[in-house]
Computed example of a mutant assay.
Amino acid sequence: MIEIRKLTPEDAEDYFRLRLEGLKKFPEAFASSYEEEIERKAEQVAERLRGQNPDTHFTAGAYYDRELVGIGTFLQRERNKTKHKGDIVGVYVAQHFQRNGIGFKLLQYLVEEAKKIEDLEQILLTVMSENRSAIRSYEKLGFEEYGLERRSLKINGCYYDESLMMLMLKNEPKIEEAKEALDIP
């Protein structure tokens, strides 16, 4: 049975182990590198988890028989002009648990928890443009591709493109409503 919940500092070692696995096995899927992250200590990871506001910035984990097998983070942007947006980052499912729906359930959880944020209007993410199965999962949840960042990552001399995707949570305001809100005649 799969259990998905927000991670706490007590989960730091398991989270760190799984994150390093993802960075090592799939370097093209993350902006961080294994070499950068291995320098961290589990205590630093626990501190990072402790410092998250569980309402607007959280890391979730998917457990299978008490083993952490999937991770993902949601962060609402903090600046006044961009706090209507949030990002899903660092999603990874252990290689031996991929392709069985755990990643999809983890994404559903991240989106549902993010929807509880009152002023959040859209969720953004990036995904390697060659990762068709991940893109299909995001599309099933309502994400739409709005752009492509060519040569987004460079690893060992090879470039990787990223698809930019967005999930709109609230409809865009009509021009009249926007003018009224800005007090424009």
Rank of each mutant, 00 (worst) to 15 (best):
D87T: 03
A60P: 13
R40I: 04
L120P: 01
E144M: 10
P54Q: 07
K140H: 08
R132G: 09
Q95C: 00
N131K: 07
L125I: 03
G72W: 06
R50K: 14
R132K: 11
H96M: 00
S133Y: 09
G61S: 10
I135V: 12
D119T: 07
Y92R: 02
L49Q: 04
Y64E: 09
I117Q: 05
E67P: 00
E118V: 07
Q98E: 08
R79A: 14
T73H: 11
I135Y: 05
R50P: 00
T56Q: 04
R40T: 05
T82F: 15
M128G: 12
E67K: 14
E67N: 10
D87R: 02
R77W: 12
V91M: 02
Q95T: 08
L125A: 07
Y64N: 04
N131A: 05
T82S: 14
I117S: 06
N100C: 05
R48K: 11
A46M: 13
E43F: 01
D55M: 03
K105Y: 04
Y146T: 06
Q95G: 03
G103A: 11
V69L: 06
T59H: 00
E118L: 06
N100P: 00
A46H: 13
K81W: 15
R77A: 14
I123A: 00
V89D: 01
E39K: 14
K105P: 00
N80R: 15
L120D: 01
A60W: 11
L106A: 08
Y92C: 05
E78A: 12
